[in-house]
Design a protein around this nucleic acid. Structure first.
Ligand SMILES: [Mn+2]
Ligand SMILES: [Mn+2]
Ligand SMILES: [Zn+2]
Ligand SMILES: [Zn+2]
Lengths: 162, 162
DNA sequence: CCTTGTAATGATATCCATTATCATTATAAA
DNA sequence: TTTATAATGATAATGGATATCATTACAAGG
């Protein structure tokens, strides 16, 4: 008996932007939803290759572009020369900020201080709109520093240039 | 009478990292100090070429790397595929955040809410240090949205991909 | 000033992430 | 099952940034 075709419920968020829901799209979205990491296109390729060796890197790039444009994922630039991606819920309930180690490149999500941050962000958005005529749509906040491992002079990065 | 060689006072911030203070270094640093914009290597090249046609793009990249490592400038990634640079005072008195138009790519500096922001950032840093063992060194905050021009459907970007 | 060792430069080649092209494949509707 | 074509994947091309290396010019000492 052939396995029933799986269609992830999040597929609906893409709407009319696409005509067909394919294996690569299912697999890439699924991986991003399940992982806690911030993956690059190559990392996604490496992760899915054992499962589906026919999937090309080009499709990964294209699918990531699609998911990003559709708002299902967020594209992150940490400055190491490659974009990273993470899943983003439709209701923004998983909104968070980043803590980046400048030595090993590790990225931590954090969502403490929701209240104060929200207040500040909202207030700032108002002022910026009034003073500069901007319509604020989103924000990025990131803290840069040294993670525990790198503070204790321990581990070295495997990321070139860190 | 030969013109006295100019050496920018900020040169001292680089310290022993270099042995010679050269024309390109003087010109690039000077340009970044004087401009209000966030320039790419190519933009710097274009700006300085009329003044000094012998300066190569490679030197621009190398000098920017030097200035960044020395803490005189800040490297910014806005996601359009090229790094941008801005001058950074030693006393951090010019610390600010960014307002980025997602349509035309315009970048605005803003420094409102110094007090509230400072409080929040300090508080956040403490918690992050305690909970995640991070030593915070810096932070980036950016707001994304539509600038006045792009809200009114006016100007289009000259930046490819926006 | 002049000389000189070498840091810095710039032309060029190379790297590498991302995008463009295009023939082939496979989805989904009929 | 058929079929129109969206989507894929191999490949080439693009473009920002870096590596190489012969040449230049800074600055210290004479
Ligand atoms: Mn995250
Ligand atoms: Mn700025
Ligand atoms: Zn680390
Ligand atoms: Zn704009």
């Amino acid at each position: 008996m052939p396995k029933k075709k799986e269609v992830h419920p999040e597929r609906t968020r893409i709407g009319d932007r696409i005509a067909r829901w394919t294996i690569p799209r299912e697999d890439i979205l699924d991986l991003l939803i399940r992982t806690q990491q911030h993956l690059t296109a190559k990392e996604i390729y490496a992760a899915l290759n054992p499962l589906n060796p026919d999937m090309g890197l080009t499709t990964i790039y294209r699918t990531l572009e699609l998911l990003d444009t559709s708002g299902l994922i967020r594209k992150i630039y940490t400055g190491d020369g490659q974009a990273r991606f993470e899943y983003k819920r439709a209701d923004h309930a998983d909104h968070h900020h980043h803590l980046i180690c400048s030595v090993c490149g590790k990225i931590l999500n954090y969502r403490d201080f929701e209240k104060e941050e929200l207040d500040l962000v909202r207030k700032t958005e108002e002022i910026l709109a009034r003073k500069h005529g901007f319509l604020i749509r989103d924000h990025n906040i990131e803290f840069l520093g040294l993670c525990g491992d790198c503070r204790s002079g321990g581990k070295r990065s495997t990321i070139p240039g860190r």
